[in-house]
Amino acid sequence: MFMRYVLLALISIVIIDLLIFSFLLIKKVAKNVVKKRKVKIKNKYDELFLHLIMETDQSMTIKPKTHMEKKVLHELVLHYNTVLSGDAKKRLLDHIDKSFIAVRINRYLRSKSVWKNKIGTFLVGEYELNDMLPVLLKQLKTSDYELLFVTARSIIVVSNDQYIKDILQVVTKREKMTKQNVLTLIDLVEADIEAILDEAMMEGNGFLKMIALEELGKRNYIKSIHWIKHMLTQPEKEFRIAALKASYSIGDIGDESYLQGMYLLQTDPEWEVRAFLAKFLMKVKRDSAIDILTNLMSDSNWYVRHNASNALLAQGEKGKLVLMDLLNSEDAFARDTAHAVLQRDILL
C-alpha cells in the first residue's frame, strides 16, 4: 500500500517535471518570437515619436490596431515619459489615441485587486488622463500607504497644484507617509504654491509644518523668512532643524535680525541643531559666521566639528586662515580636521 503511494508520487513528479520542462522551452521560444516582432513595431513607432517631438507633423495621431501594437506603444510611452518633460511630453501624449489604454485603466481602477488599483492609478498619471481625476480623488481616502503615494503622485502629475492642499492634508495626517516621500511629491508640483504652504504653516499639524517650512525655503519663497524666524525659537528640535534646512536653501539674505536668531543656536543643547547651524553658516560669508564656526570647531560633537570645518573652508581665504590657525590648536581633533580639510582643498 505504502509503495503504491510512493509510486504514485513518483509518477506525478515525473509528469510535473516534464510539464515544467516543456512549458519553459515553449515559453522561451514564444518570447523570442514576440521579441523580434516587437522590435519591428518599436522601430516604426520610434520614428513617429521623433516626428511628434520635433513638431514635424502635427496632424498625425498614433492609433495602435493589433494587441501587439498596443503593447509596444504602451511600453514606449512609459519609456519616453521618463526621458521627456514639459511641452515635448505633452505633444507626444496629445497625439496618441489613448482609448486603447483608457479601457484597461478603468478596469484596473475598478478591480478588487489592490495591485491593479495601483497600476491603474500610476498609468492615469503617465497618460495624463484628466477625466479619471474624480476616481483618484476618492482614492485619497485609502488606508494603503503605497496606493496613497501612487494616487497622490498621479493627481499631481495630472493636475499640478490644483489638489495639493488636499493631498498634503491627507498624507501628513497621522504621519501616513515619510517626510522624504511627501517632499518627493511636492517636488512634482511646478506651480507657485507659496500661499498653500503658508496656510499649512498656520493651520497644519507639526509634521505638515516641518515639511511646509522646508519646502518654503527650498523654493526660496519670501514668506519662509517669517516662518524661519518663528520656528527657530520653538522648543521642538525638529522645528529648529527644519528652519535651518530652509535657511540653508535660502542662504544669506542680508537680514541681520534673521542671522542673529540663527547665531543664538550655537549654544543649542541638541547637537543636530548645532550641526545644521554649521552647515547653514557655509552660506553666510561674514566675519560673524567665521567666529561662530571657529567656536563650533571645539564642539563636543564630532558631526558639528566636521560640518564646521567644511563650512570654514567654504568661507574662502578668511576661513582658510582660521583653519591654518587651528593647525596649532591644543584640541587634537580640531587640529586634525583643519589639516585634513586644508589638505583636501589643496588636492582637489
Binding site: T82, I119, L123
Partner: peptide
Amino acid sequence: YWSYEGMIASNY
C-alpha cells in the same frame, strides 16, 4: 507602478 527614473532624479 514604481518609477525608478523618478527615484534616481529625486533629491530625497
